[in-house]
Structure formats: structure tokens, C-alpha cells
């Protein structure tokens, strides 16, 4: 299974959320590979606590592989190479967790036919080894998105299931932007169709994930006055209505992740220890990641809208 993580804007929580989902899936027993295709800023290494690949690698990462400069892209085994001790022991029954970082000196590059070929080869190769490949794409309409849309339309990958997760914050602007990224002119559906995807089928493989959401029953709200609460509830209703009108409503949503105090401070993987031992992160955040990690593979969550 290939899962593409995208967002219209930077700073939505795409990388933090998708890495945490990948981590939960590995804990659930799947062999997981996380690919950093955010070519403009390959920083996923930092989230996994891998100092040597904090801003990508110099040893031939994703950029080098896709541009035919290396045959074996550099791999980081999170269970052994993370500098965060809480990540450095593989729990019993957990699957592999491998990061393929970008190049530290790489930038955006066009999705040439050669690059698409390489991308097809990479995905086919990873399929031998992994149950889930999570691909973190650059924000917005990017070469990276263009390349993977072209690759997944190719015959060689026709029987590899794939899904798209569109991450957005729960605000007016983000809702409208996320919808635009998918449905508007030159959006994912348009570009996908140009590469030979069936638009309806492609739409069924796209779901939205809301990040850093303040829930109605969140503890933060207890400090508010009743007038403020009423106002917030009204805003929330407006947002739901707006989301529905833009095709980003409840049915198109795969899950939502609550605002988390730890993630607000730092981009990191939440381990159970953060919740139960040091009690700094919220259990509901981990549960949300777990829930999405399960739903990605739940056929019922991906039936026609």
C-alpha cells in the first residue's frame, strides 16, 4: 500500500501527523517505510530524532535516486539509528520502520519522464519489502505530486493500492485551500486525470485529515466564559457547514487529530511513554494516530462517497 501525504500549505502538521501514523502502523506489526518527497525541505529525519539526517542526507537520498545519481538510496532504520532512546528499541511484534530521507543539498526538480520511471522502480522495489509506504510530499501543487500521480497511473503499479491523505487545519482558510488543492483547476484530480487516472476512482482514494483540532470537550475550554464558548460553538458549526459545501465534510474525512501540547512545542513522534510515564502528551492524540493508521487499511472507510 502506498499512502501519499499532502497539504495545500506548509505548517499544517502534515509531516508530524503522517510520521506518527507510520509509527503507529509499525507498532501494529506492519513493515513500514517512510519516504521524504518534500523536495524543498526534507526535514523528516528531525521528527524521527535522527540527527545525521535532520535536514536530509549527504549520502544519496531520494533526490539522488530519482535523478539517477545513486542506485541504493540511503536508508535509516529508526529502531536502531534514531538518537531518541525511546524509539531505539523495537517492541515485540513491531514491524520494520525505515526512513528514506531526501538529500540535504537537494531542491525541487521537475517530474521528467526519467524521474517518473525511477519513481515506478522505487515503489515496485519497496513493495517487496513493506506493507505500507508513506510518502511525504511537498506542500501544494508540486513536482513531487505530479510525479507520483504519473507513477501510480502506470501499468507496472496498476495493482498496487494507493491512497491520498490531505492534511489541513480546522480553519476557514485551510478548509478552502485543502478543497482547492483537490477539486479546483490544476488540482490533484485534474493532474491525475491528465496522467490517465479515472477521476471518479481517484477521488475515492482521497480523504482529508484535520490536524491540531480543538475539540468541544477539550480541557483548554474550561477556562472560557460561557459567551466565549457559545461563540466558539457557532464558529465550529460554520466551519462544518463550510467544509461540507467544499467537499471536505465528515464523509470525506478519514480522521482528526486533536491539538496536542507536546506537538505544539516540538515536531516529534509521540511514544506511549510521553503519555503514560511523563504524562506530557495527551492519550487522545495517540489514539487519533492509531485510529487513522487502522482506517487507512479499512476498506469501509474508502467506499464511494
Amino acid at each position: 500500500m502506498l499512502v501519499f501525504a499532502i497539504s495545500d500549505k506548509g505548517g499544517t502538521g502534515r509531516s508530524v501527523t503522517s510520521t506518527n501514523i507510520a509509527f503507529r502502523r509499525a507498532l501494529q506489526g506492519d513493515d513500514v517505510c517512510y519516504l521524504d518527497f518534500d523536495f524543498g525541505s526534507p526535514t523528516v529525519g528531525a521528527i524521527f530524532g535522527v540527527r545525521s539526517a535532520e535536514r536530509g542526507t549527504e549520502r544519496g537520498g531520494m533526490h539522488s535516486y530519482l535523478q539517477e545519481k545513486t542506485e541504493d538510496p540511503y536508508r535509516v532504520d529508526i529502531w536502531t539509528d534514531s538518537d531518541r532512546s525511546a524509539l531505539r528499541s523495537r517492541p515485540p511484534g513491531a514491524g520494520q520502520l525505515i526512513l528514506l530521507p531526501g538529500d540535504s543539498s537537494g531542491g525541487e526538480f521537475p517530474a521528467s519522464p526519467r524521474a517518473v520511471d525511477r519513481c515506478v522502480r522505487l515503489f515496485s522495489r519497496l513493495r517487496e519489502e513493506f506493507d505500507l509506504c508513506m510518502v511525504d510530499l511537498s506542500a501544494g501543487r508540486s513536482y513531487a505530486a505530479d510525479m507520483v500521480l504519473a507513477a501510480t497511473a502506470r501499468a507496472e503499479l496498476s495493482d498496487v493500492p494507493f491512497r491520498w491523505l490531505v492534511f489541513h487545519r480546522w480553519t476557514r482558510q485551510h478548509i478552502i485551500a485543502a478543497a482547492g488543492l483537490v477539486f479546483e483547476r490544476r488540482g490533484l484530480l485534474d493532474v491525475g486525470a491528465a496522467h490517465g487516472h479515472d477521476k471518479t476512482a481517484l477521488a475515492e482514494r482521497i480523504r482529508f485529515v484535520r490536524t491540531a483540532v480543538v475539540e468541544a470537550n477539550a480541557p483548554e475550554r474550561s477556562a472560557l466564559r460561557s459567551t466565549q464558548l457559545a461563540w466558539l460553538d457557532e464558529c465550529d458549526r460554520d466551519l462544518h457547514e463550510l467544509a461540507r459545501r467544499h467537499g471536505v465534510g465528515r464523509t470525506a474525512m478519514l480522521g482528526k487529530v486533536p491539538l496536542d501540547p507536546v506537538l505544539q512545542w516540538r515536531e516529534q513522534i509521540l511514544v506511549d511513554e510521553d503519555v503514560y510515564a511523563s504524562q506530557i502528551a495527551n492519550e487522545s492524540t495517540i489514539r487519533a494516530f492509531d485510529h487513522i493508521a487502522t482506517k487507512i487499511f479499512d476498506a469501509r472507510a474508502w467506499e464511494g462517497l
Binding site: 513493515d31 520494520q96 522502480r121 515496485s124 517487496e128 519489502e129 513493506f130 507496472e156 495493482d159
Partner: peptide, 16 residues
Amino acid sequence: QESPHLDGKTPFKSTR
């Protein structure tokens, strides 16, 4: 592995 004589699938996942 990319040979047209192969169906492209493996019966289980494994590492090279």
C-alpha cells in the same frame, strides 16, 4: 524483477 514474465507480486514481504 521488472521482467514481463513475472507477475510483479510476492507471496510475502521480505528484506533483501
